[in-house]
């Protein structure tokens, strides 16, 4: 079971290594959206710092939906997905490996680039650390919820647009508590612990259910 996880994970990372542009698209999209806001709303420090948490998260949500649509569709088109279904391994495990690979390629880079955003929006250093932490907790949830949507819309015409409609509303809790945690860390005397606990709860919940639900959706989509 573990071996199937590693084989699929290694395969997806190797494929990404051969087509680096898909990874960089997500990262550049994130950076471009982030850097457009100061141009639009002006460079007044107070406003920028205040809206920064929301902007970071909205940019992260949009960036992560960008690559979702390719999560299963490329495997679907060349027939490797049906071969995955026919291997004597649990589909949930292999799906989880694909989600982990997706997060490593699209979620983790956003976490790592976050300090740059912090500098741009003049966020205090302590809050930058909090921002990285909540992104680390929240982006896996985005990948996992997104995977369910990607599996459900697999093979549909115009699936990409439908996918955004489907998953963006489901991202709202992560947006609210993720942005809330960063704002709270900038305010005086507000604890960020409840935010972190809730985000961790989302992550654990999606860890348990998302691979299973995605596998079930894939079986329906293949049929």
């Amino acid at each position: 079971m573990l071996s199937a996880f590693w084989i699929v994970l290694k395969r997806d990372l190797l494929l990404a290594l051969r087509r680096r542009n898909e990874v960089f698209t997500v990262l550049f999209f994130f950076i471009v959206v982030i850097s457009l806001f100061p141009l639009g709303v002006g460079v007044e420090e107070k406003i920028l710092t205040k809206i920064a948490p929301g902007i970071v998260w909205i940019a992260a949500l949009l960036a992560s939906t960008l690559a979702l649509d390719r999560l299963f569709s490329s495997d679907f088109e060349d027939g490797t997905l049906e071969q995955l279904l026919l291997t004597p391994h649990s589909l949930s495990v292999m799906v989880f490996a694909k989600i982990v690979a997706h997060w490593l390629l699209t979620g983790l880079p956003l976490v790592l680039i976050a300090p740059l955003v912090g500098l741009l929006y003049q966020i205090p250093v302590d809050s930058i650390a909090v921002m990285m932490l909540v992104l680390l907790l929240g982006t896996p949830v985005l990948s996992m919820i997104g995977a369910i949507g990607a599996a459900l819309t697999l093979g549909l015409r115009g699936g990409g647009v439908l996918l955004s409609f489907l998953v963006l509303p489901l991202y709202i809790p992560v947006l609210v508590y993720g942005a809330g945690a960063i704002s709270a860390s900038m305010a005086q005397g507000v604890s960020i612990q409840p935010y972190l606990l809730l985000l961790s709860a989302f992550m654990i919940l999606s860890l348990i259910f998302a691979p299973w639900a995605t596998a079930a959706a894939l079986k329906i989509s293949i049929e």
């Binding site: 071996s3 199937a4 084989i7 699929v8 395969r11 190797l14 494929l15 051969r18 087509r19 088109e77 060349d78 027939g79 490797t80 049906e82 071969q83 995955l84 026919l86 291997t87 004597p88 391994h89």
Partner: peptide, 25 residues
Amino acid sequence: YLGHYNAIKMDLTALENLRINTLLG
């Protein structure tokens, strides 16, 4: 099962494709 699709990845080499397919088997 071998269907209409070859179930190989265009970006991987022949050897890598075969290795992954047999390992997953």
